[in-house]
């Protein structure tokens, strides 16, 4: 094997370096693993597919966790940008084996990993969302957002607000949270004005900012004067709304900072009540088996109006009235 000289050498050398580094590391590292049963400190791991500052899905959960850190005595470990499902699975596995009390799998694509790992680590609690199923497991919590509710309210306001009666709605893929929000928005807009043209399209990607921006531009060139969109890639579309001075409705997180003059309102998720309930349950020894839904009624979803936007009082009042009707059950937004 003549070539093998080259290859053996570097491969062997590589292995040697790794072993060397392992030696160096182990001499200085301090073991941190501590397994305790009734935890005074709750060790919580968050695994989430996008960045924790995405002004959308991941940030909503991260911020809620942060705000509870002191009060609930949490040790928080975060793995963000885990969009590769198998990497996320490895991370969850690692957290589970390190004795974390709660692993939050903040992405519907992690569900089946949770399903398998929860069975393997019955003493670890898992929280999975957004999702409506605990797979019947006793150590899995599920959490979800009735995104169609806020979508409907904001769509209704959009229908009233639009002067040209052309509204653009952009999603990533027509599934899950995005499907609910965009569907609710469209229905709301048509309820406000049945003659409005509501364009709905999907880019095919949760992360492609350019595609979102192009879709938004396309809507604007077709005369849309109100836009909305879902997923962490909306920042591109909000940029278009800002430069073309078109009204924008946000979701998942208060997006006013992205375009202070053009964001009308945002449907903000507040996971604090859900997380509090989960922490309380875990401290009481209940590791799962419940599904929590944030809605307008229970305060987990809130329409955050942007004070920088001059929204006509009548439109705001109409929106708040629709929200009240959804809370009372007089209106049921489509799912």
């Amino acid at each position: 094997m003549n070539i093998s000289f080259t290859r053996t050498r570097w491969l062997a050398a590589g292995a040697a370096v790794l072993i060397l580094a392992a030696g160096c590391g182990s001499s200085s590292a301090t073991p941190t693993a501590a397994s305790s049963h009734a935890p005074p400190v709750l060790k919580v791991a968050l695994i989430t597919p996008s960045a924790t500052n995405d002004l959308a899905f991941s940030q909503a959960m991260y911020a809620a966790l942060q705000s509870l850190q002191a009060k609930d005595d949490l040790k928080i470990s975060v793995q963000d940008n885990m969009f590769v499902v198998s990497d996320a699975a490895n991370a969850m596995q690692e957290f589970a084996s390190q004795g974390y009390n709660l692993i939050i799998a903040n992405g519907s694509q992690y569900g089946s990993t949770v399903q398998q790992l929860a069975a393997k680590y019955p003493k670890v609690s898992f929280a999975w969302g957004t999702a409506g199923s605990t797979y019947g497991l006793k150590n899995v919590f599920a959490y979800q957002a009735a995104a169609n509710e806020g979508g409907y309210v904001q769509g209704y306001m959009a229908g009233l607000l639009s002067k040209k009666k052309v509204i653009g709605v952009i999603g990533p893929i027509n599934v899950g949270d995005a499907q609910l929000y965009t569907g609710g928005f469209k229905a709301g807009a048509l309820a406000a004005d049945q003659h409005a043209t509501v364009h709905l399209s999907f880019t095919g990607s949760f992360s492609d900012v350019s595609l979102m921006a192009s879709a938004a531009k396309s809507y604007v060139s077709e005369g849309a004067d109100v836009l909305t969109g879902s997923s962490q890639s909306v920042v591109g579309a909000i940029g278009v709304a800002k430069s073309d001075n078109v009204a924008w409705f946000g979701t998942q997180w208060d997006q006013s900072s992205l375009a202070p003059a053009d964001v009308v309102s945002s449907q903000a998720y507040n996971w604090v009540p859900v997380l509090s309930q989960i922490f309380t349950a875990i401290r009481a020894g209940k590791l799962g088996g419940a599904t929590y839904t944030i809605t307008l009624k229970n305060g987990g979803e809130k329409i955050e109006f942007n004070p920088g936007y001059q929204l006509p009082a009548s439109v705001k009042a109409a929106g708040e009235s629709v929200a009240g009707k959804i809370e009372s059950g007089a209106i049921t937004p489509p799912q």
Binding site: S207, V209, S210, A213, G236, I238, G239
Partner: peptide, 11 residues
Amino acid sequence: LDGIFQENLTQ
């Protein structure tokens, strides 16, 4: 074109 940067902007 996009008016903003995000991770893996180029896709």
